[in-house]
Design a protein around this nucleic acid. Structure first.
Lengths: 247, 247
DNA sequence: AAGTGGTCTAGACCACTTC
DNA sequence: AAGTGGTCTAGACCACTTG
């Protein structure tokens, strides 16, 4: 009898199949395909049941990469497969900068301990005035400033950790993962347009009359635990793309 | 033997269960619940197999409303259930305005036939210079201008239809659905911040120094067929929220 | 009629958390 | 040990599109 549930590298079968299919769709044997093979055929090829294939295809469909049509087959959405920086699927700015061919560089970090504002306390689910760590920083791409951000983290998250000694130049999600064992899974993000104040504009030096995109964001770990409240100002360097789908 | 696959009102069983659960989560018996009952128990209550329940829960989880944890149960994400205007789940501005307690009113419509720009042709997958219908309009909420938009639709979509006679005051998606039988299922949206030009600002009269949010969008029907290319400028009246999730 | 994806059933075992 | 969700199997029928 085959081992069930878990494949060789620890991932689930359906996850492995989904990754494999995605690879083939982007650069492999389905790179020019308009349709994928029938579900039963894929099941045979990968040596799994149709259920596994359908779970994998469900994931791809939810992300918009394919569309399944009865009587027709599994149709590839080429335009969506080709998209690179999906705001709705990525949480990390550094990935975005890398995939745009630049190297993200962080400068002028200011780390402080502060009392939570009413807003911050509400978003993070802590008492007003609770202790926060505030990390203000600027990110450059190709030597040009592209992001200015303020990240607030409850001090309680760093219980027993000398957070001042940590390397705050790395992406904040990496830091939370490495030193606190907290993996951010999703964020609620408010998007708006602004011109910023004179300080923000002096940090980002956008062109005359250029507006900034502001993302106000609460990030969560497993079980909906809020761990990060952040305000990020983005210059027009970024091309934010997202897929909107009816529920 | 029970009828399979389709329930009383034409919806799928899993879709019906998902809707029912969503209703209970928002205002029903699970309005204050931290967890949903076990899958087997739900299966019993709704008189369906565990598979149906799991399909329904999968949909809710994909939209972020619940989280399923092994050994624990199905946990409700209250903050996400409480969100109202999800940019990633809604395609229609009028819904958003209604749910903010205002009535959307469209004024100053300008309908023209134009040749496709290179950009528009590319986005809509038609030859450059192809015939387009351009609909420019302004939307008011509570008598204040809140959106200015330009919608481009390939003329071929209206083959044999006297499009000039249609009611362009209704949402464009309703129009496409009613008269062309085309239901928009998703959109690729580019988000950016801008200050607009003097014309846009005269239409929207944002406050001094207030920036505008620009959504540049291609909307698709079944089989990834592009039917609408639009540019929409939004004032700060709108609170755009979206859920970002790791793929 | 044949082939596709969509759904459903019944049953099984696995991984995890809690008691 | 008991209960949860996660995965998988094998098989069935349904709805739809295409030839």
């Amino acid at each position: 009898m085959e081992k069930r549930g878990i494949g060789l590298n620890g991932d689930l079968m359906s996850t492995q199949v989904a990754s494999a299919l995605m690879r083939e769709l982007k650069t492999g044997i389905y790179a020019d395909a308009e349709k994928l093979p029938a579900e039963m055929e894929l099941a045979g090829q990968y040596g799994v049941s149709r259920t596994v294939i359908r779970d994998a295809l469900s994931d791809l469909e939810n992300a918009g990469f394919i569309e399944r049509v009865r009587g027709v087959g599994t149709v590839v959405n080429r335009r969506i497969v080709a998209l690179d920086n999906r705001l709705d699927l990525k949480l990390e700015y550094s990935d975005m900068i890398w995939s745009m061919g630049s190297r993200p560089v962080v400068d002028s970090i200011v780390l402080r301990e502060e009392s939570a504002s009413e807003t911050a306390a509400d978003r993070l689910g802590i008492p007003p005035g609770g202790r926060l760590i505030a990390c203000r920083k600027r990110v450059l791409a190709n030597r040009k400033p592209v992001i200015y951000s303020v990240d607030y983290i409850p001090q309680s998250i760093f219980d027993g950790i000398d957070y001042m000694a940590l390397d705050w130049y790395q992406p904040i999600f990496d830091l939370l993962s490495k030193y606190c064992g907290l993996n951010v899974t999703n964020s609620i993000t408010h998007v708006s347009a602004t011109n910023g104040d004179s300080f923000i504009r002096s940090m980002l030096t956008p062109g005359e009359g250029a507006a900034l995109l502001l993302l106000e964001e609460v990030s969560f770990c497993k079980l909906n635990r809020p761990v990060l409240y952040s305000l990020s100002y983005y210059t027009s360097f970024f091309d934010f793309t997202l897929l909107r789908k009816k529920f």
